[in-house]
Design a binder for these strands. Structure first.
Lengths: 144, 144
DNA sequence: GTCATCGATTAGCTATGCTAATTATTCTCT
DNA sequence: AGAGAATAATTAGCATAGCTAATCGATGAC
């Protein structure tokens, strides 16, 4: 049982680090001029490709009506477009426009560069410790 | 310059991992019955101790009026209490009640146990890779 | 002691979350 | 094939959470 306790302690620290990390980079999002929920949804469609409203809502952990309105706003801002799914005409497929993809990627870049500026405090050895851990973290977080 | 590019690549992966991690554990918060903004503010006062409304707003990256209403709700739910700062009677000090601290810690526990259940897929070696990286990550994220 | 400044709140707006109800399409089943 | 159930999205209406501007009381500067 000692092992389980140690795993929980590790989970706790990893969890706290993730919170602090995202709190830190979130400051950069103001520069994008897009509201947070819209930015987050846009990131799913930019990196994941066209997706139904239902699946997008699931990915963002919100209900379909909420996502419907967020997509309304993205369309109004010219960042995404709906089209009817010809395989199931009840459904709608949501895709990013070129403008949406560009904006999202710029914002992501700002966040990443900002985070990188913090990582640059570390020496070569510390950076490779992180690189080595990332594979394990990614594997652990796979959906089951 | 190769080094800077590598650091950015690392930052990108770390950033994505943090997003996925928090998206994963967030599902557990529904069980707490507390709205997200309130839960997040509560966590700051539980772990950081009494704090002024202004500083709490800063910590949560919101404006004072927003935080004032969140604290209203926390007080109504019996999770936090305001008291006047006797060193500066304009200011207010916000502290968690016992109930608030208990609830927050239970919620945190749920998140951490849930994350730990994912980490338990990893073997001893992978877990120590993460443990070794955490120190470096924590150091990098220190406010400057 | 007066006046500017500062912390918190109130008022009023927009955005984002929800459930319930509606509409259109698809699926099931005889 | 057609009736009815199930499903995808939207609309309506509510609560929560974000903002700025304006206000009130306490503090600080001079």
């Amino acid at each position: 049982m000692t092992k389980n306790l140690a795993t929980e302690e590790l989970a706790d620290q990893l969890h706290s680090a993730a919170i602090r990390l995202l709190r830190l980079v979130r400051v950069q999002d103001a520069a994008s001029g897009i509201a947070p929920a819209r930015l987050s949804a846009l990131s799913v469609i930019v990196f994941g490709g066209p997706i139904s409203l239902r699946d997008l809502a699931k990915a963002e952990q919100v209900r379909p009506p909420t996502m419907s309105r967020i997509v309304d706003a993205l369309e109004t801002q010219g960042l995404a477009r709906r089209r009817i799914d010809q395989k199931d005409r009840r459904a709608v497929l949501i895709a990013a426009t070129k403008k949406g993809a560009t904006l999202l990627k710029q914002g992501r870049k700002r966040r990443v560069k900002f985070l990188a500026s913090y990582l640059s405090r570390l020496d070569r050895v510390e950076l490779s410790l992180i690189a080595d851990a990332l594979g394990a973290i990614q594997r652990a977080l796979q959906p089951r």
